[in-house]
Amino acid sequence: MNQYIGKFVQLIYIDRKRQVSIRDVKIISVKGDQLKAYCFAAKAYRIFNINNIVDVELIKRVI
């Protein structure tokens, strides 16, 4: 995951309630099994458990 720090990616993520979501985020940092990212849908920083990420793809983000 370190290769994605500072980049815009799309995550397919399974949350605590076992619901699948697709998130466009900018990855800020990676520590252990967690990553901190800015989530554009929530318009806030979020912590994601790396073990719950199903897929990661680089995207182009126009700000």
Rank of each mutant, 00 (worst) to 15 (best):
V56R: 01
I50L: 11
C39R: 02
V9C: 04
R46T: 12
R23S: 02
M1V: 09
K7T: 13
Y13I: 09
I53A: 08
D33K: 11
E57F: 14
Y13H: 08
Y4T: 01
M1E: 07
K31D: 06
A44C: 15
S21T: 14
I14E: 09
R46I: 12
L35T: 02
I63E: 06
D24T: 04
K43I: 10
V54S: 11
D55Q: 03
I53S: 07
I47K: 10
F48I: 11
I14P: 01
I50K: 08
Q34D: 09
I5N: 00
Y4M: 02
I12L: 13
Q10F: 04
K60E: 05
K7R: 15
V30W: 00
R46K: 14
V30R: 00
V54N: 10
Q10A: 06
Y13F: 14
R18I: 02
V56E: 03
R23G: 02
N2S: 07
C39I: 01
K60D: 03
K36H: 10
S29H: 01
K7F: 13
K7P: 04
D24M: 04
R46A: 10
I59T: 03
L58V: 14
Y38N: 04
V25E: 00
A44E: 15
I47P: 01
G6D: 06
I50M: 07
K43Q: 13
Q10S: 05
R61Y: 08
C39N: 05
I50N: 05
R46S: 11
Q10I: 07
I22T: 10
V20M: 15
F48H: 06
I50T: 09
D33G: 13
I27A: 03
K26V: 12
R23C: 02
D15T: 13
E57P: 01
G6P: 08
Q3H: 06
F48L: 12
R61E: 08
A37V: 03
L58R: 14
V20H: 15
I28P: 00
A42T: 10
K60Q: 04
I53C: 09
V54M: 11
L35M: 09
F8C: 05
V20L: 15
Q3E: 09
D15H: 12
V30Q: 00
I63P: 05
N52F: 06
I63T: 07
G6A: 08
A44H: 15
I53R: 03
Y4P: 00
Y45L: 15
I47Y: 11
Y45I: 15
K7E: 13
A42P: 02
N49S: 14
I14C: 11
I50P: 00
N49W: 10
S29E: 02
K43N: 13
I50Y: 06
V62K: 06
Y38E: 08
N52P: 03
Q10D: 04
A41Y: 14
R16I: 02
I63V: 08
R61D: 06
Q34Y: 12
Y4F: 07
R61T: 06
V20E: 15
